[in-house]
């Protein structure tokens, strides 16, 4: 919790206790209004699943949280720290926000172990030996047993994605963002990745997860967010969301994917 104190003290505004607090977020790509007045609050330890049709702005929304995309209006807070295009030392904030991509994005020139230790050593300044211990711990957690010396290209898609999750976890993030982590995988590999994510959720990791894996959503989500046309159209706990969707578009969408 020492880290929290440090980061807290760096923040100008301790606006809220939420892990992630998004307040009337608006974003445009040129003249195209991708995100329209999005409000979303994620409490520490919560798991939120975001779904919605292609092009509805799901990726854009979670990529704004670590500023891979810049927003023009509204505010985003991570544990009370505002994140905006003007934030200096963005890299320091990003260290506390893990991200897992659809296409894994492992570093192909580094071994599995080096993929996991790079940021620990360069961003957290941890010595090699210790960084490798941390990496081994998380690689074991995602069940990548004896592959640490291999290069990403020597692993299957499911293994690569689990390494990517371990790489993010090594930084001991406060929030994990997932952008369709299983949609580039062959069907038989989807479960090995979802299992790791379910465990992570059970351990109380704060997670925002864009996915269409509704079984996963049912199992772990505290709340499911449905987006359409850049808006959050509906947000409800899984039972309610599936049993009694309020919005017409949610019903259509669920009809298509279930």
């Amino acid at each position: 919790m020492q880290v929290d104190a440090l980061i807290g003290s760096r923040c100008a505004s301790q606006r809220s206790e939420a892990a992630v607090d998004i307040v009337s977020l608006n974003k445009w790509y040129g003249t195209f209004h991708v995100l329209r007045d999005v409000d979303l609050r994620v409490e520490p330890g919560q798991q939120i699943v975001i779904c919605g049709p292609s092009g509805s702005g799901k990726s854009t929304l979670i990529r704004c949280i670590n500023q891979l995309e810049r927003h023009q209006r509204g505010q985003i807070f991570i544990h009370g720290c505002e994140v905006s295009p003007k934030t200096r030392a963005l890299h320091e904030l990003r260290r506390d926000v893990g991200m897992v991509f659809q296409h894994f994005n492992l570093f192909p020139h580094l071994t599995v172990l080096q993929n996991c230790t790079l940021a620990l050593r360069r961003a957290r300044g941890i010595a090699r030996q210790e960084a490798e211990d941390v990496a081994r711990h998380y690689l074991e957690r995602v069940r990548i047993p004896e592959q640490m010396g291999k290069y990403p290209s020597q692993l299957s898609g499911g293994q690569q994605q689990r390494v990517a999750i371990a790489r993010a976890l090594c930084m001991r993030p406060k929030v994990m963002l997932f952008d369709e982590p299983t949609s580039a995988l062959d069907p038989e590999m989807i479960n090995e990745v979802l299992d790791v994510m379910i465990e992570l959720a059970r351990d109380g990791m704060t997670m925002l997860c864009v996915t269409h894996e509704m079984g996963f959503a049912r199992k772990v989500a505290d709340s499911i967010v449905f987006m359409d046309g850049g808006r959050i159209v509906e947000q409800a706990p899984p039972l309610e969301f599936f049993a009694n969707p309020q919005n017409e578009r949610t019903r259509t969408f669920l009809g298509q994917i279930l």
Partner: peptide, 27 residues
């Protein structure tokens, strides 16, 4: 270099110089 490489490096909180030296230059 795929843009995902820059994004992964940034999202890990690497400083710009580290991204260049350890991720971009070797690839």
């Amino acid at each position: 270099i795929p843009v995902g490489q820059f994004e992964a490096a940034q999202s890990l909180g690497l400083k710009r110089l580290d991204v260049v030296v350890f991720v971009i230059a070797p690839q």
